[in-house]
């Protein structure tokens, strides 16, 4: 009895340091343990909640591991065909220009089958936010080689490691879209440490502000892990990501608004 009283004493609002955000639903996430998707979802949910955007937001979910994303955030959603989310978002934003519109896409979706939609939406400067989760693998279909799989990396369709002479090179699509006049803010972040989570959240908040100001396309790449696809423990996958993914996909801003850099 004394123990139960002790817990009750601790469970007080003033002691609460972490809580489920209002925008996250109660649905159980479909992700593997240690996957970065859940963290990225939470950051997005926090931003939508804190910015008071729930009634103003239309999200576009992709085909890939995050295909069921519409189950996890309590906002209006459209589920797009594989790779087509930026085209879908283009029409939503043009028909409802006052709403906050974003896509959330993986590397296969955004940088392989949807390359044309990605490039052209960014080049038109569609006033949307594109969130790009790059884990270098097709997670949902069982760990096949992705457009972003780095050289030498083993996947189920590059079982001896990616041979770039045979299979082509990994695509740095974020660097490509940064060269397009339509993109306003392009950054590459991660969500594997508390410090990186804070940086990613800051980037998302900026993107929300820029969309309000009709500045053009904001593009946030999140380099993330895939413990199951990479066949590593969550801890080891994050270490492997730091040692192998970050040298090829370095974190940080790639394109920042001119008025800001001039300061």
């Amino acid at each position: 009895m004394a123990e139960a009283t002790g817990i009750k004493d601790i469970l007080k609002p003033e002691n609460l340091v972490y809580n489920k955000t209002k925008i996250m639903t109660d649905n159980v996430l479909s992700y593997c343990p240690g996957c970065g998707h859940g963290t990225a979802h939470r950051i997005l949910a926090e931003i939508i909640g804190e910015e008071g955007l729930q009634s103003q937001t239309i999200g576009v979910s992709p085909v890939g591991c995050s295909v069921l994303l519409y189950n996890y955030l309590d906002i209006d959603w459209q589920e797009a065909a594989h790779g087509r989310a930026p085209a879908v978002a283009t029409a939503i934003k043009r028909l409802l220009p006052d709403k906050f519109v974003f896509t959330y896409q993986g590397d296969g979706d955004l940088a392989a089958i949807g390359t044309a939609e990605t490039i052209h939406s960014c080049n038109r400067g569609e006033n949307i936010l594109i969130i790009f989760i790059n884990n270098g693998i097709y997670g949902m279909t069982g760990g096949q080689m992705a457009p972003t799989t780095i050289s030498g990396m083993k996947t189920s369709t590059s079982p001896y490691g990616r041979d770039v002479k045979l299979m082509g090179n990994p695509l740095k699509i974020t660097d490509i879209v940064a060269t397009l006049p339509g993109t306003y803010y392009v950054t590459r972040q991660s969500v594997h440490t508390p410090a990186n989570v804070r940086k990613t959240k800051k980037a998302m908040r900026k993107a929300v502000q820029y969309q309000k100001l009709n500045k053009g396309t904001c593009f946030i790449e999140i380099v993330s892990n895939c413990p199951s696809g990479w066949k590593m423990t969550p801890v080891l996958s994050n270490k492997w990501m730091e040692e192998n993914m970050f040298p090829f996909y370095p974190l940080g801003d790639i394109k920042v608004p001119e008025e800001k850099s001039a300061q």
Binding site: I58, V60, Q78, A80, A81, R84, A87, V88, A89, T90, A91, I92, R94, L95, L96, A116, E117, I119, H120
Partner: peptide, 25 residues
Amino acid sequence: VVLQAESEIAAINMVYGGAACGKKV
């Protein structure tokens, strides 16, 4: 709204996005 898309594929997916907003597209 009138938009020349980058492909027929993009165009029909724009129609999907617009229609899902309840718009006549």
